[in-house]
């Protein structure tokens, strides 16, 4: 018996599973409030540990949702805001620019999901096959490094490297007989610059999660496969990859939830007038119109629209994942 066990309990608690089978009076047992109170009383140290996280999310993630009502109001510095209904949404949807911006956001996000999302998976699978631990650790250290650089620095590196006059990429193109190309001002290239700069920055760091998932796979499975004569390719395909599917599914759903976050810092730093119409995304539009232009209500309407679409996409991805793999985020 522990100090949490109460007199009269006829079903002993096993491990740290709460004892739900204690006899109670019917009305008290059926009361949700009473059950919660009993639960808190019984597990208060855990609730105490949970409290800072709950308070943080409540204060900084849920409470601000209430302020999204600004999308339906005209802002007033002095006095209460004025309720204007869907005026700002109508203004937003009447602007052809908004749909261009939405299209750009969807295209860039889709390109990143298609080309950047698989990279850390491939990288972790390849790293797992490296036999020399020293070499693997060296490679990991190098590929993690870009993650710690800010987009301001990365933009400087890419602008210099892709310079048509003296950038290393164009020097190489020149060397192999190709024409010099202004990637940073070419409307056909700039989205690929976003994709590959994102890949360069995040692939190494993101591979850490998959690599950790690979490490958690039972070594006995590999030993059994080896005894059955499986090749390295077959082990990767039939043991490693299925072993990290839950991690892939979870991260994919989270990625889809953030689908419309096409990367403000990245676009802001890599943008220029020549290609703005190709990479202007919702976040930069909201920043330009709202924060810089002082149109806070209009910008909040755009932000709220983005949030609702993101929520729908995440629930859709979760449902789809549940059906296909049996795994989801909840």
């Amino acid at each position: 018996m522990t100090k949490h066990d109460k007199a009269g309990a006829f079903s002993p608690k096993i491990g740290n599973v709460p004892n739900r089978a204690r006899p109670r009076q019917a009305d008290a047992y059926n009361s949700r409030g009473a059950r919660l109170r009993d639960g808190v009383r019984e597990w208060w140290p855990y609730y105490l540990m949970l409290a800072p996280g709950l308070i943080y999310f409540g204060l900084f993630h849920y409470l601000p949702i209430w302020e999204a009502r600004l999308a339906f109001e005209d802002l007033r510095i002095i006095g209460p805001n004025v309720w204007v209904g869907t005026k700002h949404f109508a203004q937003l949807f009447a602007s052809p620019t908004f749909f261009e911006v939405l299209k750009n956001t969807l295209i860039i996000s889709a390109m990143k999901v298609a080309f950047v999302f698989p990279l850390p998976i491939i990288l972790s699978l390849l790293l797992n096959e490296v036999r020399s631990g020293r070499f693997r650790r060296g490679v990991q250290s190098v590929i993690y490094l870009p993650h710690f650089l800010s987009w301001v620095v990365i933009a400087g590196i890419f602008i210099a490297a892709l310079s048509p006059s003296n950038g290393v990429v164009n020097d190489l193109r020149d060397f192999v007989g190709l024409d010099r190309r202004s990637f940073m001002t070419d409307s056909g290239s700039i989205r690929w610059v976003l994709v590959w700069s994102e890949a360069w920055r995040s692939a190494g760091w993101d591979s850490l999660l998959y690599f950790a998932a690979i490490m958690a796979i039972d070594p006995a499975l590999y030993e059994a496969a080896e005894m059955d004569g499986a090749s390295r390719w077959q082990k990767m395909r039939h043991i490693t990859l299925p072993g990290i599917v839950p991690t892939i599914a979870t991260l994919f759903i989270l990625h889809v939830g953030l689908f419309l976050n096409a990367g403000f810092d990245q676009v802001f730093n890599l943008s220029n007038d020549a290609i703005r119409d190709k990479i202007d995304i919702i976040d930069t539009y909201v920043y330009r119109l709202g924060i810089t232009g002082g149109q806070f209500s209009l910008a909040t309407a755009a932000g709220l629209f983005k949030g609702v679409i993101g929520m729908i996409l995440m629930i859709g991805a979760h449902t789809l994942s549940k059906r296909l793999t049996g795994k989801g985020v909840w």
Binding site: S95, T97, F98, S182, D273, R276, G293, Q295, L298
Partner: peptide, 24 residues
């Protein structure tokens, strides 16, 4: 006026982008 903020932003973005395309 604030009601034209999105229109002004849209026209300005369009102009700036296309100016470079003409110049280049």
């Amino acid at each position: 006026s604030p009601e034209l903020a999105a229109a002004v932003d849209g026209a300005e973005t369009y102009y700036r982008t296309n100016v470079f395309r003409f110049v280049s």
